[in-house]
Design a protein around this nucleic acid. Structure first.
Lengths: 352, 352
DNA sequence: TATTAGCACTCTATGTTGGAGAGTGCTAAC
DNA sequence: GTTAGCACTCTCCAACATAGAGTGCTAATA
């Protein structure tokens, strides 16, 4: 499939296409044939370029806003550009991120090790201010984190505060209703029990295996333990974790958002967290940096935008997602590298 | 001072001024003399109204975008309108909020009693979607909340998780570094000590009085207690609480924001939380609903906007602030009542 | 056969012009 | 004190003209 595209276009067409895309990314004016010849010195006249561009349009890589305007890349055109980017990258002149930046940023993240949400805020802020696009971080899904311990504290007569610690240092707390008869000692016993049973397992395992087993065997256990199950289940129904977003306002400067309505849609989509979360989760099944361009995007609200995602991990276990959303006319080479670099820094931080 | 204004303007001028303001709030077109006579049937011809409006302009209540346009209220004009609103309110036809809404909203808030941030999100969302302006909630300042208990949990070898509960149901947690030699039992003793000493005091009192006293008397206490002080101090340095914001995007629909640059400034100001927080804190020293109109506003970023604030309380103790930010051409009567009502609902929720 | 120069054509962006309309301020009459 | 009448001002909008950029096509060229 990809090979096809590279076969259909000869060397020359490919260079012209990439030149048009690059130029358009640089400044959002339709690109004319004369401009291409002048700026990127091919050995051909504008008439020849004109023919090539006409062919590229017929093949769907470029389009004209109107007769006698220059050409603008289509989503397909951007797709070709992005694909050839990663080809180039493998072979030659990829932009290198200065090792110094990586060092410095990693050190910065280390400072936030004790406060994971502050760390994620730092990540989105950095990413959006470097790129001027919208950056999003999804924190690790609860199911992927490892149970460290739970504590139960009696709070007012009929309430319990449940505090769950994970190995990753993520703390969930929740006030739950409970039988007023339960004393702090009872709670301690319940917590001890859960800690012994669950320690070292991921929350996912706990939900799927352990809890099932315990429920089956419930009859054998005393009343306190059946309470433990109920309490744990209540404590575990936390609201879907917050997502970290930054940079929505930087988009306002881009000419494609002078309209505002796109921006509204995006902000709405972000507010409806689950839309974004689902998309990003699906996107990130595969390895490395993923790019979705314009209409490739399954979410209607984002059809006019491009999304770049990557997954950060602890060792080999996937944890969460880092994403960058911008106009289709996005500086892909820069954006991809930034997402990639930042993701690696975050992964590294989780490793030690 | 206020009396002055009411003295300067005779009954008729006041009525005309209020008519112009109301009309302009209704639709953002400069208001002409003819329009005033037709819409608000005074017993005078347009020529008379013209003279009055001319006087009002000279006095600074109205202004003309250009010769031969209608008139537009100045900030001073809005101020007069708002002041006469509250006068009216005391005497007669204030818009009543249906008791049913209050009941319903209060019940809704009760559902969130166990999750205070969810509750504040609900408040901002409701307020902004009712008003179509930006709503902001400042959560209770930490210093104003009452210590309920602290728990210290050993986590990894050199880290402690400190969990602080307040009577208001607000939970702070923080991972702090600590001497690896400290065992869980030691932590329990430290926590017990702090709980006995601090329980029932506000964090403010604790910082000011108790901690000072303890430090002075430190010599008399054993080593563990001096550790307790250090741990408590670390645990207490939490990041300034989040502020809850909603409705920035609804503003985009208003004609005065077609420009976008105002919106950018506002969003920047909100991002710089402390700017907003300081303003709101200062504003809300006094009782009831406060209104700042346009240039009355000390914060430059908000000079073109109006701010309405009110304070929610637990009994008589001030807790946090609810605010609404919109254009100077804001529907003050509606906005003031909404802020007032919602504030009362929140206060009520904290009371029981 | 591939490339290119030349040219007619198309479409946008910009500036100009000329009412129409809304509103004012002033004056003189009531 | 109030109002009718009128000249004046300013904006808004549509109609029109023009410059400029870019295209597609054709015929000449290497």
């Amino acid at each position: 499939m990809e090979r096809d595209i590279f076969d259909i276009l000869d060397e020359r067409s490919r260079r012209v296409l990439n030149a048009v895309v690059r130029s358009y990314i640089d400044r959002p004016d339709p690109v004319g044939s004369r401009f291409v010849t002048r700026k990127y010195s091919f050995g051909f006249s504008s008439a020849t370029i004109r023919n090539i561009m006409s062919d590229l349009e017929e093949m769907g890589f470029l389009s004209q806003p109107h007769t006698s305007a220059g050409r603008v890349p289509t989503d397909k055109g951007y797709r070709f550009y992005v694909d050839s980017l990663s080809n180039e990258a493998q072979s030659e002149k990829i932009i290198e991120v200065p090792e110094e930046f990586i060092q410095q940023f990693s050190r910065r993240l280390d400072e936030f090790k004790n406060d994971i949400s502050a760390m994620f805020s730092e990540v989105t802020n950095t990413l959006s201010s470097l790129s001027n696009y919208v950056s999003i971080v999804l924190p690790p899904k609860a199911e992927n984190t490892t149970f460290n311990r739970i504590d139960l504290i009696k709070f007012k007569s009929d309430q319990i505060v449940a505090i769950l610690l994970t190995d990753e240092g993520i703390i969930h707390n929740k006030v739950i209703q409970a039988d007023p008869m339960l004393k702090q000692e009872d709670l301690n016993r319940i917590a001890d029990f859960l800690n012994v049973e669950f320690s070292g397992h991921t929350l996912d395992e706990i939900n799927n295996m352990l809890m099932q087993r315990m429920k089956r065997e419930k009859a054998q256990w005393d009343r306190l333990i059946s309470r433990a199950i109920s309490i744990y289940e209540q404590a575990m129904t936390f609201a879907e974790g917050d997502i970290f977003v930054s940079g929505l306002y930087d988009l306002m400067d881009l000419p494609e958002f002078s309209d505002i309505s796109k921006l509204r849609e995006l902000s709405k989509a972000i507010k409806e967290k689950h839309v974004i979360m689902k998309l990003l989760a699906e996107l990130s099944h595969s390895e490395g940096v993923q790019v979705l361009i314009g209409t490739e995007n399954p979410v209607t609200e984002l059809k006019g935008l491009s999304v770049i995602t990557s997954m950060y991990k602890e060792g080999s276990r996937p944890m969460g997602i880092i994403a960058l959303i911008g106009p289709t006319r996005m500086d892909y080479s820069k954006a991809i590298i930034m997402v990639d670099t930042i993701t690696k820094c975050v992964s590294r931080t989780f490793e030690d």
